[in-house]
Simulated assay, not measured.
Amino acid sequence: MKVISLKLDEAIFSETENILKSRKKPRNRYINEAIHYYNQMQKREILKGKLLQSSLLVREDNEEVLKEFESLGDDN
């Protein structure tokens, strides 16, 4: 495990402490789970961006192929 120093806004700290009391969970475990969850969300956002970019590239290629097929139909 790595040790880090963390500065929290007072409001966030108070809210977290209230939640920890009701959940009876160690602060360290709670923060680890929160960061893990946030990392997963960020990975999904990165993947979403990559998929969108790939989808746009494929769409352009598909439009070109469609135009070629349409032009073949015009010859008949």
Rank of each mutant, 00 (worst) to 15 (best):
K48A: 08
M41F: 10
V3T: 13
K2D: 10
G49N: 11
K43Q: 11
F69N: 15
I31C: 01
E68W: 03
E33I: 04
K21G: 00
S71P: 00
P26E: 02
K24C: 06
I31M: 01
R59S: 14
L6F: 14
E17P: 01
L56D: 13
G49F: 04
K25N: 04
I4E: 06
I4T: 14
T16Q: 01
R23L: 14
I46Y: 10
I46Q: 13
Q53L: 14
I46S: 08
N32W: 07
I31A: 00
I12H: 03
I19S: 04
L52R: 10
Q53N: 15
L20N: 00
D74W: 01
E33F: 08
K2A: 15
L20I: 12
Y37Q: 04
I31L: 11
E33Y: 07
R44E: 02
E68V: 09
S55A: 12
E45P: 00
E64N: 11
S22L: 15
I12A: 08
E10Y: 10
N32K: 08
I19R: 01
K21C: 04
G73P: 01
H36E: 09
D75S: 14
D9K: 08
M41D: 00
Q42P: 02
N62A: 15
K43F: 05
D75N: 08
P26K: 04
D9P: 02
K67Q: 14
F13R: 01
R23M: 12
Y38H: 09
D9E: 15
K43I: 01
Y30Q: 03
N76P: 03
L8R: 00
K25C: 10
G49D: 03
E33P: 03
E60M: 10
E63R: 03
F69D: 13
S55N: 12
Q42D: 02
V3A: 11
S14H: 09
S54I: 07
